[in-house]
C-alpha cells in the first residue's frame, strides 16, 4: 500500500501508532504487573475534564488533558495513600467528576464542539504534525524517567513493602508512576480516545507477560504488539471503513482472547 503513504494524514497516523506504542509498551507493563489498570482507567476518564477545559479555553484539547490528567493522578494517588479513602472509591469519584466537569465546560463553550467524538473514541487519522511532536517529546520523557528509575519502579511493582524498608520513597515513586500513566493517556487519547485508552494500556502488556522472562523483555514485546495492533487496526479500519480507534481495540481484544484461550487449551491438553 505504498500509495497510501502519499497522504500526510496516513503518514502521521503510522508515526503516531509507532510512537504511542513505545509509551504503551513501557507504561502498560507497569500497569499490568502492578495491577493498577483501574487507576489508569480512572485517570483516563478524569482527563475528559481536560478535553472540556481545552474546548472552553479554545486551545488544543490535548494541552488541557495534560494538567488535568496529572492532577487526577496525583489526587487519586494521595487520596488513597494518605487520606484513608479506599482506592476504588477515590478512583470512582474522580472518574465521574472528571467527566462531569468536561461535559459542563463543553456545554459552557459557545457553539458546537467539533471532533468531540474523536477524543472519546480516538481517531488516529486526525493526528497533526504538532500532535506528533508532543507525542514524541512525551515518549522521550517517559522512556528517560523509567530508565533512570528502573530499579525503583521494579522494586515498587514487585514488593512495595520491601522497597519501603530499603529506603525507597515508595509514595513518591508511586505518584511519579501515576503521572507517567497520565502522560501516556495524553499520548493515547489521539489513538484510542479517553474511553478506550485502558485497553491499549493493558492488553499488549498482558499478552507480552505470557511470553517474557524479564520486565524489560515484556516492555519490548508489548511495544511491538501495540504497534502491530495500532497499524493492523488502522489498516483494517481503512479497508472496511470502520472507526479506527475502535478497530484497534477490537483487534487487540481478539488477540488477547486467542492467546489466553490457547493457553487454557494447552494446559488442558497437558492435564490429560
Amino acid at each position: 500500500m505504498p500509495d497510501l503513504f502519499a497522504y500526510e494524514f496516513i503518514r502521521n497516523a503510522v508515526l503516531a501508532s509507532l510512537f504511542a506504542s513505545v509509551a504503551c509498551g513501557i507504561i502498560g507493563s507497569y500497569v499490568v504487573v502492578k495491577k493498577i489498570g483501574f487507576i489508569s482507567g480512572g485517570i483516563a476518564h478524569t482527563a475528559f475534564g481536560g478535553i472540556g477545559l481545552g474546548y472552553y479555553l479554545g486551545i488544543n484539547p490535548l494541552f488541557g488533558v495534560i494538567p488535568f490528567s496529572l492532577a487526577a493522578a496525583i489526587a487519586i494517588g494521595l487520596l488513597s495513600r494518605k487520606a484513608k479513602v479506599a482506592e476504588d472509591t477515590a478512583i470512582g469519584a474522580f472518574w465521574a467528576v472528571g467527566m462531569a466537569v468536561g461535559v459542563i465546560l463543553i456545554g459552557l463553550t459557545p457553539g458546537y464542539a467539533p471532533n468531540l467524538f474523536s477524543y472519546l473514541f480516538g481517531n488516529i487519522l486526525t493526528v497533526s504534525v504538532a500532535d506528533l511532536w508532543m507525542i514524541a517529546v512525551l515518549d522521550i520523557l517517559i522512556a528517560a524517567l523509567t530508565w533512570l528509575f528502573s530499579k525503583e519502579f521494579l522494586a515498587l511493582s514487585f514488593d512495595e513493602e520491601y522497597a519501603e524498608v530499603s529506603g525507597v520513597k515508595t509514595t513518591r515513586f508511586y505518584l511519579l508512576l501515576l503521572c507517567l500513566i497520565a502522560l501516556t493517556v495524553v499520548i493515547l487519547v489521539r489513538v484510542a480516545g479517553i474511553v478506550l485508552v485502558i485497553a491499549l494500556l493493558t492488553i499488549p502488556a498482558a499478552i507480552a507477560r505470557v511470553f517474557s522472562s524479564t520486565l524489560r523483555g515484556m516492555m519490548g514485546l508489548a511495544t511491538v504488539l501495540s504497534a502491530f495492533f495500532c497499524l493492523g487496526g488502522l489498516w483494517l479500519s481503512w479497508q472496511l471503513d470502520l472507526a479506527s480507534g475502535a478497530t484497534i481495540i477490537v483487534l487487540a481484544g481478539i488477540a488477547f482472547l486467542l492467546v489466553h484461550a490457547g493457553r487454557a487449551f494447552i494446559s488442558f491438553l497437558k492435564a490429560r
Binding site: 530499579k151 521494579l154 511493582s157 514487585f158 514488593d159 522497597a163 530499603s166 525507597v168 524479564t214 515484556m218
Partner: peptide, 19 residues
C-alpha cells in the same frame, strides 16, 4: 506477588542491593 511476574530469582536477589 503475581506468579507471572517476569522476574528471575537472580533479579529478586539483586533487589536486596537497592538500599
Amino acid at each position: 506477588f503475581d506468579r507471572e511476574f517476569p522476574l528471575s530469582v537472580r533479579d529478586v536477589a539483586l533487589m536486596g542491593r537497592i538500599a
